[in-house]
């Protein structure tokens, strides 16, 4: 792989994202929503002068949880299939670039766009809150941002797998929207149903929850914002007792990293080995 080519393709992706305006729309939407939520939560806090992990903080997590996976999945899903469908991928590959460079460049380019957008969203609303004043810890805010960035990579790479394996952009968008619903609702519903019907214990519920990247993110984000593991009920207590406070964070981070690395590797191998053009 040649760094120059990766950078060129990455740059091309970033410029396209900027030109197609999805990057701007995404950033603006995200910033406004985050700002509204933070504002709302701080106006609450002013009543009491004490902050806590309230529903509003949870809403911020929820916002990230709905917004980031959708954009990441769809962006990833379109990335390659769209270029394949309209022929630009074929044309690009007829030039002296390797498939690995194309994959890496496109992945990094889209990742940078999404990451910058998330950082701007958190950062701009954070500046307003910082000037106005608030008691949510800066480090917690930073960690929430970092977790959101990880969530974005994870789902972007899952989107890329979809994209590599499908020929039509429309089809890959459909699949990615389904995956979004699946990760956010269906899988949890399935676990809940199973728990109720089969009376699953704490451990299976915990393990099953970790099999879903969005759920890993949520647990990590909630535990970051709220010092109490009990907020997650017996499962939280189980995690704390079994792994300790730091151990649980390491575990969640590792799960998050795995959820990032494995899809990237699969997508990368699929794209470099299956010559479909």
């Amino acid at each position: 792989m040649e760094f120059k080519n990766v950078l060129l393709i990455m740059q091309k992706e970033v410029r396209e994202a900027l030109k197609n305006r999805w990057f701007i729309i995404y950033t603006v939407c995200f910033s406004i929503l985050a700002l509204l939520l933070l504002f709302f939560s701080y106006s609450r806090e002013e009543i009491l002068g004490v902050s806590g992990f309230g529903r509003t903080a949870a809403s911020l997590i929820n916002l990230v949880l709905l917004f980031v996976p959708l954009v990441s999945l769809v962006t990833g899903a379109i990335s390659i299939s769209n270029e394949r469908e309209n022929g630009t991928l074929f044309y690009l590959l007829s030039h002296p670039v390797e498939r690995s460079e194309v994959f890496t460049g496109k992945f990094l380019g889209l990742l940078v766009s999404i990451w910058v957008s998330i950082c701007l969203g958190f950062g701009l609303s954070g500046i307003v809150v910082g000037i106005k004043g608030g008691s949510l810890g800066a480090s917690k805010y930073l960690l929430t941002t970092l977790l959101s960035l990880l969530l974005a990579v994870s789902l972007l790479s899952i989107g890329f797998i979809v994209s590599v394996l499908s020929k039509k952009a429309a089809k890959s968008i459909g699949i990615s929207v389904f995956l979004w619903l699946f990760f956010l609702v269906f899988s949890d519903l399935g676990i809940m149903g199973t728990t109720i019907v089969m009376d699953l214990g704490i451990k299976p519920v915990f393990v099953l929850a970790l099999l879903n990247p969005t759920e890993v993110f949520k647990i990590a984000a909630v535990l970051n914002m709220s010092p109490r593991f009990e907020v997650l009920g017996p499962v939280g207590v189980y995690a704390l007792r079994s792994f300790g406070r730091d151990g649980t964070f390491y575990l969640l981070f590792s799960a998050m990293i795995l959820w990032t690395v494995i899809p990237i590797v699969i997508g990368f191998l699929a794209f470099t080995l299956l010559k479909k053009e």
Partner: peptide
């Protein structure tokens, strides 16, 4: 009843970094 929240330096710093650093990189890349 609490006094109004004041200016939060660390929060502002973190947020400014969150804006400035990616934006700088982004511009450089473009």
């Amino acid at each position: 009843k609490a006094r109004k929240g004041g200016f939060s330096g660390s929060f502002l710093t973190v947020s400014i970094i969150l804006v400035a650093f990616p934006l700088g990189f982004y511009t450089y890349l473009i």
